[in-house]
Nucleic acid binder design. Structure first.
Lengths: 311, 311
DNA sequence: ACCTCTTCTTTGTCCATGACAATTTTGTTG
DNA sequence: CAACAAAATTGTCATGGACAAAGAAGAGGT
C-alpha cells in the first residue's frame, strides 16, 4: 500500500520529479509542460523512463522561481541561459535604491543573532514611538530584506526569521496598548488568497496607536464571512489590505461586492500596494494610499461622528 | 503569471480537485484513479467538464483518509457506505473520549466576545501552567473548534478569530519565558505547503517551557534552506511538524532527504498528525507521537549529552 | 495623459488513458 | 506452521490534448 517512491536518489545522481516539486515549489504538471513547450528543463530518464533532473537544472529552476516570485514571467526567463538570470537577479536590487540606514539588520540575520535583533527592534520602537516605527522603520526594513533575498544576500529562512520576530514585536505592542471597547471599532482582514500578514499587523498597530479598537480576522477571509462578521458586531469600519501582487481588477470587484453587501453606516477602507497610485476610487470606498494616511483618516471619522448626532 | 489556483468554493456548491487535495491530503492522481477503479468518489462536472466534489463526498473522503491513517487499506474502505465508516471511526474515537469541558468557547466566539475569550485563555493557562495548558486544553479547544466548523456550528472567520487569539496567547507566553542561549538549541519549522502555524507554536511553547532555546523559522521552508539554517547555527536539534493532512509519503521522503543532508551530530525530530500511529520510523529520525512525548525526548537529549564528553 | 474596455498571448492546471514497481495478500508445498 | 511463489492491490508517472484565467497590447472616450 505504502508505495514508497522509486526516487529518493539523493542529490548525488539527480532527483525524481516529486523531489523537484518539493524543492522548487513548481508543480509536476508545470515542470512537464515547460519541458514540452520551452525545451527546459530537459531531464534525463532512468531505466523505467521516468524523469531524472540533474542537480544543475534544479538549481536553474530554483533561480527561475525566485525571479518569478519577484514578478517576472516564465516565458522570458525560460529562454535565457543561467548566467543571464543570475545577472538579472543582481541588477534588480540595484535599481530600487537602498536604505543604508537599516543595513544593520543584515549581519544580525546572517549571524542568527536573534536576541540582539529582537532587542534592536524593541529599542528602536521605544525610541521613535510606535507610529513612527511602523511608518518609517518597518517599511525600510521590509524593503531591505526583500532586496537581500532577491540578490541572494539572505536566504528564505532568514526572511522568515525576520518576519517572525517583527510580528512578535508588533503583536506585543498592540497587546500592550489594549484599547478595548474604544471607538471606532475596525474589522481588519484581507480577502481570499492573500497572505501578507505582516502588512496587516502594521496597519493594526497604527490603528491601535490611534485609539481604535481593532479586530483582526487574519488572512483569507471569504467575502461572505466578512459581511457576516461585520453585521454580527457593532463594526464602524471594515478595512481591507491588498498586497501589491494582488491583481487590481480582482481587488476592485471585491470592493464593489463588499460595498454593496455592507450596511451604509459601515465605512469601507482599502489599502495596500495594489491600491497604490490608483487615483480613481471605488465609490463608497476610502482608499488609503499609504500608511501615513491612516491617522488622518481616523481623525476624519471621529470628526464626522462628532458632527452627527453623537447621540 | 501567478495563476493562483482557480479553486475552492467555500463548500457551498462543491470543491475543485485541487481544493480536495489540500483538504484531504489525497493526491489528485489518487482521487482520479479511485474514481476510475472503485467508482468512488463520483464528483459532478462543471460547465467545462472539471470535477466538482460535493461537500458530502469530501467528508466521506476525509473519513476514509482518517481510517487509512490508522492502518486500513483503501480497497476495503472504498466499498463501504459512509454509515459503516462513521461507525468504525466512532468506535476508534470512543477510546479518545470527547471533551465537553471546553464548550464554553463556542458562545464566546459566536458573540465575538474577544476580551472575554482572551481573558479566559489567559486565566486557564495561569491556573494549569503552560505545559498542561498546551497538552490538554489547547488540543481540546482545537478539536472543539474543528468539530464546530465541520458541523456548521461556527463560521470560518470565527475559526480564524480563535486561531489569532490563541496564537497571541502562546506567543506572549513564549516570549515571557525567554530562555535565551539555553541548550538544546532547537530549529523548528515545517516543510513547504504546510501552514498549520498553531501546531508549531504549541510545540515551541512546550520546548520553551522545558528550557530549550527555540528558533522558529515559520512555515513553508524549503528543504535546502532548512539544511542551510542548521549548518549556519549551532543547532542541536531540527524539529519538523507535519499536519495530519500532509501525505505520509511526502513527509517520509522529506525526512530521508533531510537526514542525509544534515550533519550526524544534529538530531532530527518529526511530529504532528501525519506521524501518528506510524510505527515505522525513518532511520535516524526520532518520531514524536504526541505532545506528551516532547518532555521525555528533551530529557533524553540532555541525558545523552551529559553521558558524552560534555567537554 | 489617464483610465477603461476589448482583443490577443501566455501559462498553469485539468482530463483521459495506459503502464508499472512496490507492497500486501493469498495459495501452495515441505 | 514456516517459507516461498504467485496473484492482487495501489500510488505515481507518462503522454498529449484542451481551456480558462492572468497579463500585455491596442483602441477609444473623458
Amino acid at each position: 500500500m505504502d508505495n514508497a517512491k522509486p526516487e529518493s536518489s539523493p542529490a548525488g545522481t539527480g532527483m525524481g520529479i516529486a523531489a523537484v516539486e518539493r524543492d522548487t515549489g513548481l508543480g509536476k504538471d508545470t515542470l512537464r509542460v515547460w519541458e514540452r513547450r520551452y525545451g527546459f528543463p530537459q531531464p534525463g530518464r532512468d531505466v523505467f523512463g521516468e524523469r531524472v533532473y540533474p542537480a544543475e537544472q534544479v538549481e536553474h529552476l530554483r533561480l527561475i522561481k525566485r525571479l518569478m516570485d519577484q514578478g517576472q514571467r516564465p516565458g522570458a526567463l525560460l529562454r535565457q541561459p543561467m548566467a543571464a538570470l543570475s545577472e538579472q537577479c543582481a541588477n534588480a536590487s540595484a535599481t530600487v535604491g537602498a536604505d543604508d540606514a537599516v543595513d544593520w539588520v543584515i549581519p544580525l540575520l546572517k549571524h542568527r543573532d536573534v536576541d540582539h535583533l529582537r532587542a534592536e527592534l524593541a529599542q528602536r520602537q521605544a525610541r521613535d514611538g510606535l507610529e513612527r516605527f511602523v511608518i518609517e522603520t518597518v517599511p525600510a526594513l521590509n524593503r531591505r530584506i526583500g532586496d537581500g533575498w532577491m540578490t541572494g544576500e539572505i536566504e528564505i529562512f532568514e526572511e522568515h526569521l525576520y518576519t517572525e520576530l517583527m510580528q512578535n514585536q508588533l503583536r506585543s505592542s498592540i497587546h500592550a496598548l489594549g484599547s478595548r471597547g474604544a471607538r471606532p471599532q475596525v474589522l481588519l482582514t484581507t480577502v481570499k488568497e492573500e497572505e501578507h500578514l505582516l502588512g496587516l499587523l502594521m496597519v493594526e498597530a497604527l490603528l491601535a496607536a490611534n485609539g481604535a479598537w481593532c479586530l483582526s480576522l487574519g488572512a483569507q477571509t471569504p467575502i461572505a464571512d466578512i459581511v457576516g462578521a461585520a453585521q454580527g458586531t457593532t463594526t464602524d469600519i471594515v478595512a481591507l489590505s491588498f498586497s501589491s501582487a494582488y491583481p487590481w481588477r480582482k481587488a476592485r470587484d471585491s470592493l464593489v461586492e463588499l460595498r454593496a453587501a455592507l450596511p451604509a453606516r459601515t465605512e469601507l477602507w482599502a489599502g495596500g500596494g495594489a491600491l497604490k497610485g490608483r487615483g480613481r476610487q471605488v465609490p463608497g470606498v476610502r482608499a488609503i494610499d499609504n500608511l501615513r494616511a491612516i491617522t488622518p483618516a481616523l481623525a476624519d471619522w471621529k470628526a464626522t461622528r462628532a458632527s452627527l448626532g453623537e447621540h
